[in-house]
Design a protein around this nucleic acid. Structure first.
Length: 578
RNA sequence: CGGGCUGUGGCGCAGUGGUAGCGCACACGCCUGGGGGGCGUGGGGUCGCUGGUUCAAAUCCAGUCAGCCCGACCA
């Protein structure tokens, strides 16, 4: 393609709102253009890269047994109502009505829609397993779109949904999808870290995210420092095991629990300073509520309660931090003085029409010498011992893990932390959707069988953006050969007729070999072309001018290394095709 | 949803009450011609929107819309 036909849309100015490299460079290099918050137009080069990623995804999905379909972006409300998600999805789902005031949503995901398609033709176990996928647009009214293509409101996603007669079959497909994903990201030249992920309240039994390590990542990953162990997980999911080297708590079983006055001091830090005991010896109470329940959670004072773990454990979806009135009704004290000792209500009891549910982190089991709120404004209780002053029937995993904690897999090495961007997610869904939407086939005995499901997503635009995050320098983007819009950026410095003819000839020859070439035939100075070539980031920059025509050698610059070579046409073809 | 910041030519920005500017880009001319070149000429903006204060508003005030950043979490 010639620049005279497919113009560059490069700019010298960074967009004023670009915070991250991929956004800045993709905009400046003219691959994308913002049209609204979280809404991007793909310009020719951007669209070309996007299509290449789509094609890689398509090929690998097909290779691992996927079947491509295409579902409407507009999804009827009744499907969402069947699954119960019309109310659960909240504001993130963009909703609309037609002229008859029938409700629809711009699909943020397509579990319901695909299950609906599947139930329309699946009749027999003999049709299973089947893995249906599409590459299509998704709409999510994100709280805060940001980072260009990394968090948008409209984006293209490959979403696959598999249907199975049993768990074994689901496992097999799940493993195939793992392989497919590894292969997809490898072909895209992306280094990904598969991590164990939170399977949320979707009822799933397994879930892995494919993460690209990046300082701008919105997820925190915890990796086992022992490579032989190889444990990797999303912080949301990582089970917390305290590092014994951080122990050193007070053990004071003999001393009786007693209240002491702390006045206006409420926070653990303040009370710790007063008593000289470490925050680790405190019991922190965090209280949430939803429409029916109050969730009273106790964790070790120096650690943070994981809302995600709490939420999954409690099965809560729409909840909030408990109001002052609720806390008052529960503890009889102002906020800041809740504790497990001498509290008026027990797990399962009603507190002003809501059911109290109490959760303890397992690390509190067997501890003594603890300090906790006294359920009395202005007082805390010290020398508290579990098993004597209060009892934990069942301890749960409720704490956010961090670097330095112990790996939950090998139970020996410490964890390290890194940030990541999620580019893919594979998920064992189970029967949640098939049951709710009454997807049923006949089993070998002629009895109804509800298929179990898996779902598997990849963000195409996000994959493109993370590729730029991982591959760029101060001069611009550095595309992987499988993603680049063109393999060669041919800088023509030809002036004379004969020189132009030479360049045209070279352009034709390279194309005839099946090499994609972008010919910069603009009437611009050399420097402008060199700068643009490096900004848009095609792997090989070939310069042809008087010099090279006279010497008979083409000047080739490798975009990634910056290495400059002088090659014959044949050598260039070998290099590029090899 | 809370806090902060920003809306001025295509892009990036300056302009604190008195004739709307700069850089880049764009058009034309000349020069230059292997790393964003030079000189000159030129076109282009109801200063987000609405209302108010004032002799006079891009500028001050109120409202509103949009964008961006931080937070929405530990009592």
């Amino acid at each position: 393609m010639r620049a005279s036909q497919l113009p560059l849309f490069t700019s010298k100015n960074d967009p004023n709102d670009a915070q991250v490299a991929s956004h800045r460079l993709l905009s400046r290099a003219g691959f994308i253009r913002k049209q609204g918050s979280g809404l991007y137009a793909y310009l020719p080069f951007g669209d070309m890269v996007h299509r290449k990623i789509e094609q890689i995804v398509r090929e690998e999905m097909n290779r691992f047994g996927g079947v491509e379909v295409s579902l409407p972006v507009i999804t009827p409300a009744e499907l969402w109502q069947e699954s119960g998600r019309w109310d659960l999805m909240g504001k993130e789902m963009m909703r609309m009505q037609d002229r008859h005031e029938v409700g629809y949503a711009l699909g943020p995901t397509h579990e319901e829609a695909m299950t609906d398609v599947a139930r329309s033709f699946l009749q027999s176990y003999k049709q299973l397993p089947i893995n249906l996928y599409q590459i299509g647009r998704k709409y999510r009214d994100e709280i805060r779109p940001r980072y260009g293509l990394i968090r948008c409101r409209e984006f293209v996603m490959k979403d696959a949904y598999s249907f199975h007669a049993d768990d074994k079959s689901l496992d097999e497909t799940y493993q195939k999808m793992r392989e497919a994903y590894r292969s997809i990201f490898e072909r895209c030249g992306l280094k990904t870290i598969p991590v164990e992920a939170d399977s949320g309240n979707m009822g799933g039994s397994g879930s892995e995210e494919f993460m690209v390590a990046s300082s701008i990542g919105e997820e925190t990953l915890l990796l086992c420092s022992d490579e032989a162990c190889g444990y990797r997980s999303n912080q949301e999911k990582t089970a917390f095991i305290e590092n014994p080297s951080r122990g050193g708590s007070r053990s004071a079983q003999d001393e009786t629990a007693e209240d002491f006055e702390t006045g206006a001091l409420k926070t653990i830090e303040e009370v710790a300073k007063l008593t000289g005991q470490s925050p680790r010896d405190f019991i922190k109470a965090v209280i949430f509520e939803d429409a029916q329940n109050i969730f009273l959670c106790f964790v070790q004072g120096d650690r943070e309660l994981s809302e995600i773990k709490m939420k999954n454990l409690a099965g809560a979806t729409d909840y909030w931090l408990a109001s002052e009135e609720t806390i008052n009704a529960l503890t009889g004290a102002e906020p800041g003085y809740a504790g497990p000792v001498g509290i008026k209500f027990k797990d399962g009891e009603k507190v002003s029409k809501k059911t109290l549910r109490v959760f303890f982190d397992r690390h509190l089991k067997g501890r003594s010498g603890l300090i906790t709120g006294a359920n009395k404004t202005g007082y805390h209780t010290k020398n508290v011992a579990e098993g004597r002053d209060f009892t934990i029937a069942e301890g749960h995993d409720l704490i956010v893990s961090h670097a330095g904690d112990i790996c939950p897999q090998c139970k020996k090495a410490e964890l390290t932390e890194t940030r990541g961007i999620e580019v893919g997610h594979i998920f064992k869904l189970g029967k949640k959707y098939s049951e709710k939407m009454k997807l049923s086939v006949l089993d070998p005995n002629g009895k109804p069988l509800t298929p179990t499901m898996g779902c598997y997503g990849i963000g195409v635009g996000r994959t493109m953006a993370t590729s730029v995050e991982q591959n760029h320098d101060e001069r611009g983007i550095i595309w992987h050969k499988n993603l680049t819009p063109f393999v060669i950026y041919l800088v023509s410095l030809a002036k004379a007729e004969s020189e132009i003819a030479f360049v045209d000839q070279l352009y034709a020859t390279l194309q005839a070999k099946g090499i994609s070439v972008y010919l910069d035939d603009r009437d611009e100075r050399a420097g402008v072309k060199f700068n643009d070539a490096e900004l848009v980031g095609f792997p090989f920059i070939v310069t042809v001018g008087k010099k090279s025509i006279e010497s008979g050698k083409l000047e080739v610059k490798l975009r990634r290394s910056g290495e400059k070579l002088e090659l014959s046409e044949t050598e260039l073809v070998q290099l590029v095709m090899g």
